[in-house]
């Protein structure tokens, strides 16, 4: 079972809450996905309002909220937003997103590391969203991150695992869970991420913007499960060409 900090998850599919065409549909899709960790942007909710419409659709015993700091540009802003979120939402879990570039939403590695150090010391469970940068992942691990969330391709792009070579290194080297976040466009992308050993994936756009978000959530749920089983069962090695029927070393067995 997947464990992050002190919490166990039976589902390895994490989800987002943006871009849905209605809040009831969002809720239905999230339930269908079986997801137990759901991220939501602080900017979208009124955290001081207990009756906030958005939040009321997310409150459910099976769902753990993962507030994110989307919109902040610096470590200082992230720390401030995190403290407000902890107070209002009564959770010390945080998806740390610092993207000073609002066009492509590229995460800032320097500010993210600084904020992780400070927030981890302050007792937060930090899941930083970052580039698929293996060295940065090790630095974040040392700084006290509880998991790392490297991107598969630009956020919202649905382009799949463009960073796969780096993800494989990160997964191999990491002592904390690796959650592939951003860019996963189809269930097959999610399955692939799980097959290479990711601990979980986070999917938002591909579910929210599909024609039928509830069915798509189910498809992702099954793909993540299939990918995980395949990883555990050790995939057979891929071969690019057929194995030669006259092996190069066969002559050693021949009698001269």
């Amino acid at each position: 079972m997947l464990k992050i900090a002190d919490k166990e998850f039976s589902s390895r599919l994490f989800t987002g809450t943006g871009k849905f065409s209605s809040l009831p549909l969002m809720q239905e899709a999230l339930f269908a996905s079986g997801s137990e960790l759901v991220t939501m942007a602080l900017r979208r909710v009124d955290i001081n309002n207990q009756k906030d419409d958005f939040l009321s659709y997310l409150r459910h015993p099976k769902i753990n909220l993962l507030p994110n700091t989307s919109g902040v540009r610096t470590a200082k802003e992230a720390v401030f937003a995190a403290q407000l979120a902890r107070e209002a939402l009564e959770t010390n879990w945080l998806k740390l997103e610092i993207h000073p570039d609002p066009k492509y939403l590229m995460p800032d590695p320097v500010e993210t590391l600084l904020a992780t150090e400070e927030l981890a010391k302050a007792g937060f469970i930090i899941l930083p969203y970052i580039h698929a940068d293996p060295v940065l992942c090790k630095r974040l691990e040392n700084a006290g991150a509880s998991a790392v969330m490297p991107l598969g391709s630009p956020i919202g792009s649905n382009k799949g695992l463009k960073t796969i070579d780096f993800l494989e290194i990160i997964i191999e080297q990491s002592n904390i869970p690796v959650i592939v976040d951003a860019g996963i466009g189809s269930p097959s992308d999610a399955a692939k991420a799980m097959e290479i050993g990711a601990d979980a994936v986070l999917v938002n756009t591909a579910i929210a913007v599909s024609e039928n978000p509830v069915q798509m959530a189910i498809a992702f749920k099954m793909a993540v499960e299939a990918g995980r089983i395949a990883y555990s069962a050790r995939l057979a090695k891929q071969e690019n060409h057929a194995i030669a029927s006259s092996p190069l070393t066969a002559f050693l067995d021949e009698e001269f």
Partner: peptide, 18 residues
């Protein structure tokens, strides 16, 4: 809503701008 879209009243927060 009738067009199949969610009206969004809030997409920023004072806390993001300190």
């Amino acid at each position: 809503r009738t067009k199949g879209y969610e009206p969004v009243w809030k997409d920023w927060d004072k806390a993001l701008q300190c």
